[in-house]
Design a binder for these strands. Structure first.
Lengths: 353, 353
DNA sequence: TCGCACTGCTAATCCGATTTAGCAAACCTG
DNA sequence: CAGGTTTGCTAAATCGGATTAGCAGTGCGA
């Protein structure tokens, strides 16, 4: 069936040289090791004719480098959000001739251990450990044996591993500024967290904490106080609906900052129930740029999670880790923050007195 | 830094035997090849103590099997829908101790070639070629050198490769039955395709054709004629909105069969615009079970794409391919159809005369 | 006591590359 | 023209296992 792969030995035979010479010529080290032009050309020609491709498994065994990186996540593949993260990583890896192993732990530490082990068994050159939503994680000790990067996650304990995360603080600033720029000064309510610095859902979500910091900072600078805040235990539509409904029963907000798009979806429904129009009566800004954000009516202005860029960046950082001299294990890993761009759509308008 | 991996030689030395013996004992072939109980135990003990793990790269070189399969898709990782497909494949593979390489072609044939090549260079044991939405694809000839399976796709030309696809015809039947069971007989409109067998969007979508077949079959059996059908060039919310709006300007339907959930989202908006309530005035059934289906109000009854099961099934089929004697390349590949379960929610009610 | 079968283990080879060490021929040099 | 240098290439070792062929030692029958 499968016609045996062409090996280096085949190329060497056709070119009439030894495998050693063929290897040298193909790896470009021919010059350095005094292979003649003539022979080099013969080898190259033979390789092209036979469509020779080196067996990476063999190279992996000999050199210890498999041109492969492992991408382990808690549950990335499931969420659409993170599909783009994988895609970014995939493309960045491909540009360097690397492939990606993927694995899902579903938050199971034992499974995580097994997966990392399976990847090491396959001699991956590096590992990206990703979280579905930005948070702090316990770094498994298996992570220290190979170059590694945390993606969308920060180490719970001090660790030499670098992290790549979205710049949530700046995102909070940007969202708040969007409302200020439209002229909002009063009746700004937060849905999902706030108004106080400590009013965040349990679970160690970095997004809640940092978005809140950014929002509060910009509002404070403008001398504006959020009119209220509503912590939601889970950032799902039904909680956004409930929180907004509760709010509307007491007062009439002029603007909502929803902590993600699903909450905003619920908020839209509540506003609709109360006969309020977005953005004429109430402006809404949100975070994530989930696909539904552009399906909602009016389309939602939201600060996007840059999943694709996060994935790319993680690979970039991993490659610098791989290239780095693995000795200087002092110090903490650097934290790389990827900008979150705002998508201006139709859900924000001036308060119109 | 990284303490050199434990090798078979290390285990052998500790156990006081040759690497050959250690290999035999560990591979379980000890009995067959007359290794004494005593020695076997010593080896096992040494391996456990050292936490020995065989280097799969080495095994791959020697035996040609890397316990790895390649998952190549046009753009699967991006779509949330398909995240579950990967997840199913991932789990099924993991249960057998296999890892997954993933790659995205973005519909680029050249990129596809390169990816398949990169996977073969890494000696994958088999390949799953997946499509984001069910359709017919041209099978690259590189696919014939290793065991392979088409996922969510059918071969455009006759091919020995097996396929795994959702059972869209039965899904169409199920959707139609859901309306019939609720008592609907009249005013049933199709949004997205139909009413005639040929009224499908361009692009070779298997879903449109087969769902339509199933729907028409069941309605015909019940002596019911669809009141109308509206082909949408793309199955996005805005087209669903437009089609439904156009429909409502002419008549008042009693039930809609939307060809996917995004169309249904648009339809909901149009119905709302016309002051019609779901399901009191108009029942809606749909396909896909996209996450938004359970966020919509009322929650949408929809026939689910079994992505997770598709992924699992593809791996199952791939393993039987791998196990099969690769000689009998006669015949066409088998087509495996995975059932699509209906999610009964709140968007269907009896027509209430 | 010789020959044979069986038991229990190991030496050697192989997979397909990379890399080190080294060899033969040509070329200088004084 | 002997001795040293350079040029151009190759043999052999290596990576870490799996696999094949075979080697000692024992037991047994004749």
């Amino acid at each position: 069936m499968s016609p045996r792969r062409v090996t280096l030995a085949d190329v060497a035979k056709i070119a009439g040289v030894s495998p050693t010479t063929a290897s040298l010529a193909l790896s470009g080290r021919g010059r350095e090791l005094r292979i003649s032009q003539d022979v080099e050309q013969r080898v190259l020609k033979a390789a092209a004719e036979l469509q020779y491709r080196p067996n990476i498994v063999s190279v992996g065994l000999r050199t210890g480098t498999t041109r492969t990186i492992g991408f382990v996540s808690d549950t990335v593949a499931t969420s659409r959000l993170a599909g783009d993260m994988i895609k970014g990583a995939l493309e960045a890896a491909r540009e360097r001739g690397f492939m990606l192993f993927i694995g899902e732990t579903e938050g199971d530490a034992e499974l995580e251990r097994l997966l990392l082990q399976a990847m090491h068994d396959r001699q991956v050159d590096g590992i990206i450990l990703a979280a579905m939503y930005t948070r702090t994680i316990k770094v498994p000790k298996a992570m220290t044996v190979a170059p590694a990067v945390l993606l969308n996650a920060l180490p719970k304990q001090p660790s030499p591993l670098p992290s790549v995360i979205p710049d949530e603080i700046e995102a909070g600033r940007v969202a708040a500024r969007a409302l200020l720029d439209a002229g909002h000064r009063e009746g700004i309510h937060l849905i999902g967290a706030g108004p106080g610095r400590r009013n965040v859902p349990a679970g160690g979500s970095v997004a809640a904490v940092e978005r809140l910091i950014g929002i509060r900072e910009v509002l404070a600078e403008a001398g504006v106080k959020p009119a209220g805040g509503h912590v939601c235990p889970d950032w799902q539509p039904e909680y956004g609906l409930a929180a907004t409904r509760a709010l509307l029963q007491k007062e009439r907000p002029r603007a909502l900052i929803c902590f993600n798009d699903r909450l905003a979806l619920g908020a839209y429904q509540a506003l609709d129930d109360f006969g309020l129009k977005v953005p004429a009566d109430v402006s809404v800004v949100s975070f994530d740029d989930h696909p539904i954000a552009s399906w909602m009516r009016p389309q939602l202005t939201t600060v996007a999670l840059p999943h694709y860029e996060l994935g790319r960046k993680a690979v970039d950082v991993l490659f610098t880790e791989i290239g780095r001299d693995r000795e200087d294990d002092g110090g903490e890993g650097e934290v790389h923050r990827v900008p979150m761009p705002i998508r201006l759509r139709q859900s924000v308008a001036s308060p119109g007195t």
